[in-house]
């Protein structure tokens, strides 16, 4: 049973020791990886995924339950440790959602596949804007539907204890709920993101700079409050979007006023 992953610090791009010596992530926790493009987010994720043992360019070492990867897995290669959902992934198989899920469930030797598939579909539809039906073809799903199904499947069928989520903020799914679901399954969630709401909904965030782990911040209760404000603010914008998409015209400024006042509150809160 995987309870904890630790990253032991290595070197940044200038071959200097990175500021963070050790980073621990426990099962059921979300770690956000933030920082500008080129700051080393992908390399950090890659080190975790490859169970680096000092041999990658960064010289980082990964521990699982405080053991070296070699000690943890006898052959040095444990299968399916990290599952991945990213923006650029697609379903490529010509199959119905139901048939495919049952095939995946079979591969995972799940005893009651029908029950599991229904559960995956329920979670998927909780996350997606438009409903996904069992008979839908996988390749015909919209971007949001596909991402929602990927999250549902990774949460409930895949047995990988670590889930890597790469920039799904524009995927058109309820991303905060998606994180809750993955956490609820006891997964370790690694989240590469530029989205402030996602950064603040994680338990901790590591900030990358010049290839190294630069700062490690635990999310404070005040930040959690800001996150809630931010989510409310986004809901308003989404309401405004729906309103315009319905074909309405904005005559009374009420919606806009409400959003602006929420926005002001938010800015005062975070300042």
């Amino acid at each position: 049973m995987l309870k904890k992953i630790s990253v032991l610090g290595g070197l940044d791009k200038d071959r200097r020791k990175e500021s963070i010596n050790r980073l621990d992530i426990n099962a059921g926790e979300v770690l956000a990886v933030a920082g500008p493009t080129g700051s080393g987010k992908t390399q950090l994720i890659s080190d975790i995924e490859q169970y680096a043992d000092g041999e990658t360019p960064t010289g980082r070492e990964i521990l699982i339950n405080d053991l070296t990867v070699e000690e943890y897995t006898r052959d040095g290669i444990s299968r399916g440790l990290v599952a991945e959902v990213s923006q650029k992934m697609n379903f490529v198989m010509d199959s119905s959602v139901e048939k495919f899920l049952s095939r995946h469930a079979k591969v995972r030797s799940i005893e009651t596949p029908e029950k599991k598939i229904a559960e995956v579909l329920r979670v998927t539809n909780e996350l997606a804007g438009e409903p996904v039906y069992p008979a839908d073809n996988l390749t015909m799903l919209s971007g949001g539907q596909a991402r929602a199904l990927m999250v549902g499947d990774v949460a409930l069928i895949s047995n990988a204890p670590v889930v890597l989520i790469d920039e799904i903020e524009n995927a058109g799914i309820d991303r905060l709920r998606a994180m809750e679901i993955l956490k609820g399954q006891g997964k370790i969630v690694l989240l590469v993101t530029h989205d402030p709401a996602l950064m603040l909904m994680s338990d901790q965030r590591v900030i990358m700079k010049n290839g190294g782990m630069y700062r490690l911040q635990q999310t404070t209760p005040a930040e959690k409050d800001i996150m809630k404000q931010l989510v409310a603010f986004e809901k308003d914008i989404s309401r405004l979007r729906d309103y315009i998409r319905r074909g309405e015209s904005i005559k009374h400024h009420n919606i806009l006023k409400e959003i602006i006042s929420n926005g002001k509150n938010f800015i005062t809160l975070s300042a």
């Binding site: 991945e84 650029k88 697609n90 379903f91 198989m93 990927m150 069928i157």
Partner: peptide
Amino acid sequence: DIVSQAERE
């Protein structure tokens, strides 16, 4: 990197 986790498995 471009196909779903489920299909990879």
